[in-house]
C-alpha cells in the first residue's frame, strides 16, 4: 500500500519533469494549429516547423559554432586544469600557497563585477565577433583546478616517486602516470564544462553580433524575441528541440556521470 503511494507520487513527478519535453518534441512535429492541444497524438506529422526555422536562421552553422566553442573550452579547461591541479597537489614550488589562495579567491568573486570589464578587454583586443572572444575568458576554470587538485592529492605518492626514480620528468609523470588514472575526474570536469559552455548564452550575446558566429542558444534566443518566428509556435518549438537534443542525447549516454559530477560540484561548490 505504502509502496503504491510512493510509486504514484514518483510517477507524478515523472510526468511533471518529462511530459513538457515530450510535448515540446511532439509539438514541433505537429501542424501549427494542433500545437496548443495537450494531446501527444497529432492529426498528422509534419516537418514544416523545422524547414521554417532552418530557412530563417543559420542553425546548422550555429550548431557547428557551439560544438567548436564547447569542445575547445572543454579541452582547454581539462588540459590546463590538470596541469595546475597536479602542480598544486604534488609539486613544491615558490608561490604555490599564494596560487592556491588566488584560485580560491577567484571562485568567490561574483561574475557580475568582472563581466563588463571582461567585455571591454575583448573590445580592446579586437576579439569581439571572433571564436577567440567566445572561448578565451572560459579557457580555464578555478573550480576545475580545485577538482583536479583534490583528485590528485589522493594519488599515492609512492607511484610518483617510482616514476621519478625511473627517470621520468614531472611532465612525463603527469602525462604517463597521472592522466591514465584520472578518467573519473576528467569526465566530471569535462562534462560540467561542456554542459555549461553549450548552454552559455549571456557571454555570446555580449561579444558576438555577427550572425555567422552566433552559438546555438544565442541564435535561438534572438530568434524567439526578434519576431522572426512571426508569432508561430511550431518554429519556436522546433528550434528549442534542436537546441536541447544534443544535450539530451549526451545525457542519455552519460547519465550517471552527469548526475555524479553535478552532485560533486554542488557539494564542493
Amino acid at each position: 500500500m505504502r509502496k503504491t503511494i510512493v510509486y504514484g507520487v514518483l510517477a507524478g513527478g515523472a510526468i511533471l519533469f518529462g511530459y513538457p519535453f515530450v510535448w515540446m518534441m511532439v509539438g514541433s512535429l505537429k501542424p501549427e494549429l494542433d500545437i496548443s492541444s495537450l494531446s501527444l497524438l497529432p492529426s498528422s506529422w509534419s516537418l514544416h516547423s523545422y524547414t521554417a526555422v532552418l530557412g530563417k536562421i543559420p542553425l546548422a552553422r550555429a550548431f557547428l559554432n557551439s560544438v567548436l566553442v564547447s569542445l575547445a573550452t572543454t579541452a582547454s579547461v581539462v588540459l590546463f586544469g590538470s596541469m595546475v591541479g597536479y602542480a598544486l597537489a604534488k609539486l613544491n614550488f615558490i608561490g604555490r600557497k599564494l596560487l592556491y589562495v588566488l584560485i580560491l579567491f577567484t571562485m568567490m568573486i561574483p561574475f557580475q563585477i568582472t563581466l563588463i570589464p571582461q567585455y571591454i578587454l575583448m573590445v580592446k583586443l579586437g576579439w569581439t565577433d571572433s571564436y577567440l572572444g567566445l572561448v578565451a575568458p572560459s579557457m580555464m576554470s578555478a573550480f576545475g583546478i580545485i577538482l583536479f587538485r583534490q583528485f590528485f592529492m589522493a594519488v599515492p605518492q609512492a607511484l610518483i616517486e617510482a616514476a621519478r626514480i625511473d627517470g621520468c620528468s614531472e611532465v612525463g609523470i603527469l602525462v604517463r602516470v597521472i592522466w591514465p588514472l584520472s578518467r573519473p575526474v576528467v569526465l566530471t570536469v569535462g562534462l560540467l564544462t561542456f554542459m555549461t559552455s553549450w548552454n552559455e548564452v549571456l557571454w555570446p550575446m555580449m561579444v558576438v553580433r555577427e550572425r555567422s558566429l552566433m552559438t546555438m542558444p544565442q541564435i535561438v534566443a534572438l530568434f524567439t524575441i526578434g519576431g522572426e518566428a512571426e508569432s508561430q509556435l511550431g518554429p519556436l518549438l522546433a528550434a528549442a528541440t534542436m537546441l536541447s537534443l544534443p544535450v539530451i542525447v549526451a545525457y542519455a549516454l552519460f547519465q550517471r556521470q552527469f548526475i555524479e559530477s553535478m552532485a560533486s560540484s554542488g557539494v564542493k561548490g
Partner: peptide, 24 residues
C-alpha cells in the same frame, strides 16, 4: 530511472526550457 528523469531539465539549455515554458 526516476532520479535520471527528474534531473533532465538540469542539463537542457535554459533557452530551450524558457521557450517551452513560454508556451506552457
Amino acid at each position: 530511472f526516476f532520479r535520471a528523469l527528474y534531473f533532465l531539465p538540469v542539463v537542457v539549455s535554459g533557452v530551450a526550457v524558457t521557450i517551452l515554458w513560454q508556451q506552457l
